[in-house]
C-alpha cells in the first residue's frame, strides 16, 4: 500500500517534470520510479511511517487550510510591526509542552510553529519545544495550546 502510493507519487513527479507523453519516456519514468521504490525500501529502509507518512493525507485536508489561515493572520500582524515606526516587538523565549506521541507529530508541530511568522522553534526535545517569539502576544497565543491540540489530532490518523 505504501509502495503503491510512493510509486504513484514518483511517477507523477516524473510526468510533472517531463510533460512529454511518448511511450518510451513513460516507460522510462515508470522504470526509474520502480527502481527508486526498491532502493528506498530494501537498501535505505526509509519507506516507513516516518519516511512516507501517507496515512495522514485525510487529516491534512482539514489541518492545512487552518494552518494557512494562521499563517496569513500572523504574517499580516508581523508585517504591521515591521512597518510601524517604533518597531513594537518584545522578543521572548517560551517552553511549549507537546502532547504528540510520535516523532512525525512532533516534527509537524515544530514545523507549524516555524512556518507561522512570529514564532520559531529553536530546540526540539521529547516533551517540549523551545520557542522564540517575536512578541509576547504571540508567545501567549501559542501557550493556549490550540495548535498543539490540532497537531495531535492531525497525527492521530487511522
Amino acid at each position: 500500500m505504501r509502495h503503491v502510493s510512493l510509486l504513484i507519487a514518483l511517477s507523477a513527479f516524473w510526468l510533472l517534470l517531463s510533460g512529454v507523453f511518448t511511450p518510451f519516456l513513460l516507460a522510462a519514468g515508470l522504470g526509474s520510479a520502480l527502481l527508486v521504490v526498491w532502493f528506498t525500501d530494501r537498501r535505505m529502509k526509509v519507506l516507513d511511517l516516518e519516511g512516507h507518512p501517507v496515512h495522514l493525507t485525510r487529516n491534512a485536508l482539514t489541518y492545512w487550510p487552518w494552518l494557512l489561515w494562521e499563517i496569513v493572520k500572523s504574517g499580516w500582524d508581523v508585517s504591521k510591526r515591521i512597518l510601524h515606526p517604533r518597531l513594537p516587538i518584545s522578543p521572548c523565549l517560551v517552553r511549549v509542552a507537546t502532547s504528540q506521541k510520535t516523532d512525525v507529530g512532533r516534527v509537524i508541530y515544530a514545523n507549524s510553529i516555524t512556518l507561522t511568522p512570529g514564532t520559531i522553534s529553536l530546540e526540539l526535545s521529547d516533551s517540549e519545544i523551545l520557542v522564540h517569539a517575536l512578541t509576547r502576544e504571540g508567545a501567549e497565543g501559542l501557550a493556549t495550546g490550540d495548535m498543539d491540540r490540532r497537531a495531535t489530532a492531525f497525527e492521530a490518523a487511522l
Binding site: 504574517g75 508581523v78 508585517s79 522578543p91 511568522p117 512570529g118 514564532t119 520559531i120 522564540h132
Partner: peptide
C-alpha cells in the same frame, strides 16, 4: 538574528 528570522518568515 532571531528577530530577522521572523522577518524572513514573512
Amino acid at each position: 538574528l532571531y528577530t530577522r528570522l521572523h522577518a524572513s518568515g514573512v
